[in-house]
């Protein structure tokens, strides 16, 4: 019953398929829902298998797959033109992105860390999913996957400087969203007087 597998499929299966959890994690952030994420993972593996002869053994396979995923996602959802890698947000100055880093007192920082630590995972994911794709994916690759900037630049097909500024801004946007949420939940982050 089991169909016979070519040498190519055997080598692909043993090398690429174990990276499925990582691909799924990234796909979830691209698509923001499990069913589209599964489709994206499947399409990415299908494309990668088709191009397996072009993969250079010994080079970074995970990065190669993530790059295929970037292109697959863009093609699947036709979300941006090839030459539109730069978004309008990249042109904004830092002060326009909001939430400047004010020098806050030590106790306030601790309060924020504590509030952040107590936020449910679903809230964090919702906040992540609210920031623009290109920023979210850079934050994801840097923070969750721990990839170096140069690798993220290759995966996203952008200059390293863009990776750096998207990481800074993405984190800032995310933090603003989470601070707003934490305040709604009754955490005091600014040292404001409690209404009691």
């Amino acid at each position: 019953m089991p169909a016979k597998r070519s040498e190519k499929l055997v080598s692909f299966e043993s090398q690429a398929l174990p990276l499925m959890p990582q691909l799924y994690g990234a796909a979830l952030r691209w698509t923001r829902n499990p069913s589209d994420a599964e489709d994206l993972v499947q399409e990415t593996f299908a494309k990668a298998f088709g191009a397996w002869d072009k993969y250079q053994q010994g080079t970074n396979l995970k990065a190669w797959l993530f790059r295929i995923m970037t292109n697959t996602h863009i093609n699947l959802y036709n979300k941006r033109n090839k030459d539109q890698a730069k978004t309008a947000l990249d042109d904004l100055e830092d002060w326009q992105v909001g939430s400047g880093e004010s020098i806050t007192a030590r106790t306030v920082r601790s309060a924020e860390a504590e509030a952040m630590d107590n936020l449910p995972a679903t809230i964090i994911r919702e906040a992540l999913d609210q920031i623009p794709d290109e920023f979210r994916m850079v934050v994801y690759y840097a923070v969750v996957e721990g990839l170096p900037y140069a690798e993220i630049a290759e995966i996203m097909e952008t200059p390293v400087g863009t990776v750096m500024s998207r990481l800074h801004r993405g984190k800032k946007m995310l933090r603003t969203l989470l601070q707003d949420y934490a305040r709604q939940e009754g955490y005091e982050l600014d040292g404001e007087e409690a209404e009691s």
Partner: peptide
């Protein structure tokens, strides 16, 4: 750490079969 924790989601088991 909070971001890492929130993104720790495993794929369904059927996905591997679908892909194969």
């Amino acid at each position: 750490q909070v971001i890492q924790r929130s993104c720790d989601e495993a794929p369904a088991e059927e996905l591997a079969e679908r892909v194969m």
